[in-house]
Amino acid sequence: MSNDFYQLSILPYAAILIKICRAYTSSQEDFEDYYQEVCLQVYRSRESFREQCKWSTWVYRISLNVCLTLLKKKQRNGQIYFTSDVLPETSSAQNSAFESEPLNQLYAAIRRLSEVDRALIILYLEEKPYQEIADILGTSANNIAVRINRIKERLKKIMDEKFN
């Protein structure tokens, strides 16, 4: 991967990539592995980009696909240590942004959602327009709002039960 490619095509989206990878991992090692794989896949698929969507949409789509694939692989290998009933350790990433307790609690709750719902809520929290979310997830924009409301309700419920 060339320096230029990383600097220009990945680094501007690093923040959201970090946030996405964090939603699918519960340890620093996994987080770094997922981020690595995302960068690599973005680099590899750069020639398949046909400019039918924004580059950022392409990057997010790849990052979600990579995270889902890696998560499925881990689940198959029995390497997921938490179930929906048990919240994982939260403060794992060596980022000062992740020192905020409420944020870590929110992440712990997000990890209890289904794989697609995790993607949806993160893109929503990143204030992506519904149409872009739909483009990234390959779905229609019509039911995004309804679904997001349901996810928000569920998150609130999880956080109330677990942390209050």
Binding site: A14, A15, E32, Q36, C39, A97, S100, L103, L106, M159
Partner: peptide, 20 residues
């Protein structure tokens, strides 16, 4: 949750991308 998210990531420059 929107407020938690916003406050948590108030300063995005604190997000450290792992060294490849």
């Amino acid at each position: 949750i929107e407020a938690i998210w916003k406050e948590g990531f108030l300063n995005e420059s604190t997000l450290v991308a792992p060294r490849i």
